[in-house]
Structure formats: structure tokens, C-alpha cells
């Protein structure tokens, strides 16, 4: 407890944002408890009700409670964004470490593929990929993953190149450690913090990209509650029922802001050199 208080005192910004992020996750987890009604139940006679005591955020064009849909939207968005970040960190780190450690042909192949990926505008390539695979949340995550792993691969590769020439690697070799053991015990633990920090600062961007694909119709399909697609669907009603765009927009804004600031402050905590 004392340690915790000391940590909070030392890193107030991180603590606040971590708390907010925890709140965000708790909202998503507890959505069924917090929601006023089923987000998928349409009461047609209550279509397009403005925000009020009955429906805090109003209702959409089918008469679904927007507040409940926003809460459930947090589930969709957060699950997708954590999956996405997890996948690209794991894939990027694996490929990067492999390339950096093995060198030669393997390095050349992996890095050239990554160069090809980078030479396209990311979002456009993701749209093309999602378009080919068909609209679904899974495909949207896969599409963004396809274009986003390169950054992590490059980072992991450069770290591996540094690490492999360190004395402790030579020592490990001399004492008879095998390559998998060295990679697992010495390279990975030294490369992972940088990858994690990059991942944490990227979560916000990833969330925007997923929402963006959904907005364009490549992600969540109706009736799924997802902020990007809710924003897109509300567009037609921008002048007559602005709350349909306002609340999903706010939700994206708040979530992205919290996650971005958390990423920033996590960097400050883990990487104190800058101070």
C-alpha cells in the first residue's frame, strides 16, 4: 500500500490516466449492468427521441436507446483495439527479432515485405484489404494489422541488432545456451519494453483507425453497436437528430484521449531518461 502511494505520488499523471482507462474498461465489462435497456431492442414508436430523462442520450432511427448502445459500443471498440494491438505487437516483435537475429536472406525478405507495406498509404491499403475480405469487425482488425505490424518489426529488429552484440549474449553463448533460450531469456525481455511503449502510445490511433474503417462501412455490420459505424449511420440525421453523431463522436474522442494520454504517461514511467 505504501509502495502504491509512493508510486502514485511519483507518477501522478500515469495514475490518473490509468484510473480513467480502468474506468473505461470497467464500463465495457459492466455494460449489461449499466445499460438502461438492451442495445438491440428497437421500440419503433420511440424513434429519434432527443436526449431526456427517459433516454439519456436519446434514441436512434429504429428507437434503440443510444446510451445503451454507446456502452455496448465500448465493448466492441475496446475488444477490437486490444486484439489489434496485441496481434501487431506479437507479430511485429516475432518477425523483427527473427529478422534481426537471423540476418541474411530471412532478414532481407522480412524487411523488404515491410518496405512494400510502408510504401502504401496505410489507411488506403487497409481499406483495400477490408474491402476484399468483406465487412466485419474481424476483417477490419486483420486489415489494419496487415498494414501496421511493420513499425514493430523494424523496432524489434533494430533492438535485436543492438542486443546480439552485447557482452551478455556472448557470455550466454560461451556458457552453452542454445539460440531459442537466448532469444527467450535475453533478447525478448530487452526488446519488449520498447515495443510495449510503442504499442501503448499507438492504441489511441488504432482505435481511430478501426472506427474509421467502420465509419466507411468496412468494419462493424448492423446491428452491431460500434462507435465508428454509429457515427456513420447518424450522418444522415446530422441536422435533425444531432445526438446520433454527437455521443458516438464524444465516446471516440474521450476513449482515444484517455488511451493516448495513458500511453504517453506510460512512456514517462518506463522510460525515465527524457526527464
Amino acid at each position: 500500500m505504501v509502495k502504491l502511494i509512493a508510486f502514485v505520488k511519483k507518477n501522478p499523471a500515469f495514475s490518473v490516466f490509468a484510473l480513467l482507462a480502468a474506468g473505461l474498461i470497467a464500463t465495457a465489462v459492466c455494460a449489461p449492468l449499466l445499460a438502461a435497456q438492451d442495445p438491440y431492442t428497437a421500440v419503433m414508436s420511440e424513434a429519434l427521441q432527443p436526449p431526456g430523462p427517459e433516454h439519456w442520450f436519446g434514441t436512434d432511427w429504429l428507437g434503440r436507446d443510444l446510451y445503451s448502445r454507446i456502452l455496448y459500443g465500448a465493448r466492441t471498440s475496446l475488444t477490437a483495439v486490444f486484439c489489434l494491438t496485441g496481434v501487431i505487437m506479437a507479430a511485429g516483435a516475432f518477425l523483427g527479432i527473427t529478422a534481426g537475429w537471423c540476418g541474411g536472406v530471412i532478414d532481407a525478405v522480412i524487411m523488404r515485405i515491410s518496405d512494400i507495406m510502408i510504401s502504401f498509404p496505410g489507411m488506403v491499403l487497409a481499406m483495400a484489404a477490408a474491402g476484399i475480405m468483406g465487412a466485419s469487425m474481424k476483417n477490419a482488425v486483420a486489415a489494419i494489422a496487415i498494414v501496421s505490424w511493420t513499425k514493430y518489426a523494424r523496432l524489434a529488429r533494430s533492438l535485436t541488432l543492438q542486443i546480439r552484440n552485447q557482452d551478455y549474449i556472448a557470455a550466454a553463448r560461451v556458457t552453452g545456451s542454445r539460440t531459442p533460450h537466448i532469444l527467450w531469456r535475453y533478447v525478448l525481455p530487452n526488446a519488449i519494453p520498447a515495443v510495449l511503449i510503442t504499442g501503448a502510445t499507438d492504441i489511441g490511433t488504432m482505435m481511430m483507425e478501426i472506427a474509421g474503417l467502420s465509419f466507411l462501412g468496412f468494419g462493424a455490420v448492423p446491428p452491431a453497436a460500434e462507435w465508428g459505424s454509429m457515427l456513420s449511420e447518424g450522418r444522415v440525421y446530422m441536422t435533425t437528430a444531432p445526438w446520433l453523431m454527437l455521443f458516438p463522436g464524444l465516446a471516440i474522442f474521450i476513449a482515444v484521449m484517455i488511451l493516448n494520454l495513458l500511453g504517453d504517461s506510460l512512456r514517462d514511467v518506463l522510460d525515465p531518461r527524457e526527464e
Binding site: Y40, A42, M44, W61, L62, G217, V221, P222, P223, V236
Partner: peptide, 26 residues
């Protein structure tokens, strides 16, 4: 046509309550 999307999603919503799965395809 403006009514199409609404009709499609409302049908999906209503028939789900009847227990019939509908997947809109635009």
C-alpha cells in the same frame, strides 16, 4: 433510395425478435 436502409435494418431487428436471423447485404 432513402427508405431502403431503414427498411432493411428494421426487418433485421424485428425478425430477430421472431427468432429469424437476417443479414443485410448492401
Amino acid at each position: 433510395r432513402p427508405e431502403q436502409k431503414i427498411v432493411a435494418e428494421a426487418t433485421q431487428m424485428e425478425l430477430a425478435q421472431l427468432g429469424i436471423r437476417v443479414t443485410p447485404e448492401v
